[in-house]
Write a protein that binds this DNA or RNA. Sequence first.
RNA 1: GCGCGAUUAGCUCAGUUGGUAGAGCAAUCCGUUUACACCGGAAAGGUCGCAGGUUCGAGUCCUGCAUCGCGCACCA
Length: 916
Amino acid sequence: MHNDNNIPEELLKPYNPKETEARIYQSWLESGFFNPDVCIEKGVTAPDAEPFSMVLPPPNVTGTLHTGHALMLVIEDIMTRFARMQGKRTLWLPGTDHAAIATQSKVEKIIEKEEGKRKGDLGREEFLKRVEKFAQESHDTIVGQAKRMGASLDWSREAFTLDAKRNLAVRTAFARMYNDGLIYRGHRIVNWDPKGQTVISDDELVYEERKAKLYTFKYSKDFPISISTTRPETKVGDTAVAVNPSDERYAAFVGKEYDAVFCGVPIHIKIVADESVEKEFGTGALGVTPAHSQIDAEIALRHKLPTVQVINEYAKMMIGGENLIGKKTTEAREIIAEWLRTEGLMEKEEDVSQNISTAERTGGIIEPLPKLQWFMNVNKKFKLGHSEMAGFAAGDEVTLKELMLGVVRSGQTRIVPENFERVYFHWIENLRDWCISRQIWYGHRIPVWYDKTGGIHLPKERTIIFVRHGQSAANVADTYAGQSNSPLTETGIAQAHTLAASLKGRTISKIFSSDLSRAQDTARIIRETLGVSEYSEHQELREISAGNLENSPRHTEPLLFAAFREKTGETASELIARAKKAWEIITNDTSDGDIIVVGHQSFTSIMHAVVDGAETEAALVNHRMNWTMGNATTREYTYCVNPTDPDLSQDEDTLDTWFSSGLWTFSTLGWPNKTPDLATYHPTTVLETGYDILPFWVARMILMSTYLTGQIPFKIAYLHGLVRDEKGRKMSKSLGNIIDPLTLVDEFGTDALRMAMIVGVGPGSDSNLGKDKIKAYAKFANKLWNIQRFVLESTAQFNPESNPTLEADDQTTLDEIDALMQEVTKEMEEYKFYLVAEKLYHYTWHTFADVVIERSKQKIASGAGADSARQMLVTALPILLRALHPFMPYITEELWSKLPGRDRAMLMVSKWPCRT
RNA sequence: GCGCGAUUAGCUCAGUUGGUAGAGCAAUCCGUUUACACCGGAAAGGUCGCAGGUUCGAGUCCUGCAUCGCGCACCA
């Protein structure tokens, strides 16, 4: 085979990333190879290949991507492309996060700025419309940016933490946890943000150091003990004074009770002894305010003290005479201090600095308040329902905390770098019950309904079992013969019986059937075996199956849908619309228990596709393939029926955003339904995210997954660090040093940015991003470009199949590359991408280009050993392109497409090089 | 208070299980204009924070200290 004499014209110019990148990404999209199903269909991945799966940490829909996101996309794309090239069944699943409070407050600010309106002026419905519009726009921006980074995400599976399917997952999770007693409603001291008018979690607090006055005083003249506080206004709510049990100064008073009138408010104070009080602090005595301090509330609980709330949701006094009531806390503080002075009760006033809690999003000063909220109990024992985790068996009595600790301690989930495991343990061990309710509008509404007596109603979880009726070789033969209405063969009957037996023990309320006689036969057998009385056939269900009754080659895949549509003349969307109607009929059944639907293959798979939200023909075919490949005869669907009684009212609050993101590894794969994706890809292989959200997100995913699925969510949690500016400073608005990754892409190309972000940046460590570094790798891209140009020019007349004997030095080069590939493969598998990128860069430039190519120039010029050199060059170059592809996908794909004389399969699905 | 990390060339950082100290950028000198000036070659530059210890041998392991950064908790 002779190569073309002409070097592609574009190669004669310097590498132009701008022109190349959009075109290459489009060709990747068109290939469909981001979708593992397509890879299997097109034969680039074996159907039984080892899966590699990873979810994208969903970016918040609050705006645009920053450099941290860019780093995340780079690392994850490297992992994904490497796995795909290794032939694994590779899924990298994209999505975005609704980010409840962050998004809501952002939109509130915009509306206030542009229209001068508050969210209350618009009303819940209108306001949510605005937030959704904003979220949609942010989403589109984010997706566009991710694509420019070269991310090989499977867009066909994209998810959103607030879409309908994730809402099903949230409702199901909530209901299960409630039924296990892990979610409860109770009065607790919470972090109340008076500015945002919502509860926030400990993680959303920001501490600010401020100056404050520490007042030391007595409640009244005849009160025996002095106390200190920075917040005298709360003291009208005191119900006790606590001292350390070993404190001899106060031992005589413990147990005594006193009445006093404090700034006009009658108070009743009991002296109690509690270990938590430090003798050395202040006077060694603590005024206990159970309603407005976490610690005091705990003391009050231990000593059964009453709780008196004195401050309301607007941070104003709600108790006292006219001098106090309705006053802001800061005003009340001064009034009471003044009262103490005039009464001669004040003993000391000193300046101290103290950390006060403020709300991360609104900046409001947090007021600890007792509120009726929803909580998740992390310390309560429950019976584990299902477990595929080592060290935990179904039926074990465990707590959520034990699950979270256990799977990491045992190494089933590993954290990389390892030292972060200690941070993780530290956080879990100190974890308190998690307040999951928020008084904001944007988010998953708490799936709880109240009746007039205050009774609580939750969604009911139901299962629909789709049964593909008894299929056998004989049935297929019948179909061929055009006798699809023939009754069940003996094999089919036997299968129906087996199926029915496997369903025994479940509560089945009703069986639906499409009207194929065989389906009816199967339904009848199941009904008789299970003793279910109800059996329905609906017109709509029959219509769905009608088009496929006769003579269609329905056993041949994936032609089925084409055949179906020829028959009925329907578009995919019409088909889907009818299927949706059928689904509605099935799910509107309100009787208790699960439901069985029996149908032939087409019917069940169309229903399957509809339930999974397929909206296009491509998606239908995709589902069809899943169904076939999974070779399932039954498929279970879970859904939740919300209470429909009009007298019930739903809880006004929404869930903490981490509740839905905790479900992310499996809600994206179809949970609570038993989908093929869930079976194939969960637990996911790796979770890659920033170390800053290790406790909030990583820990909660482990909690949710171990409890709800009985599986770990991921085998490896790979943590990356912060991206700082070139001087090592944190990027921030106030410093004005925020770099938009896309301007860097415009200037230097995506590949250069990717290399700059990855080289030398190990897990868990922060990195500095400067233009010099990116520039260096832009040069490298050009170098690579010219290497190929040289190789093509000097081998234009060369026939590699002449297979010349290699001279010793050329053979050595190939051996070196071989050794390098083995080395980097091992390092890739150990997640040491930062080393691999550097090694490949260094070898390509400073050995291959500077030494090997220079040497081959002489050989080719002199003619002695020229063919040996050419043979070496045409062998070595494709290997380097493949090895560099995960790091620099665009330029390598482009160069690959210009290599002559090889099959034109895309580089992104070529095999990772191990040997020359 | 508890915990984590860092300290290596002028700057930014690598350095796998201990075996003669590495890269990029910057700075110096020389070369090259048909693969590439987004180039090549050469040389220069380090008591690896400090003090001990283990070892035949320590940037690497152990102990202590110092400085810087970060996280968590407390803050009556």
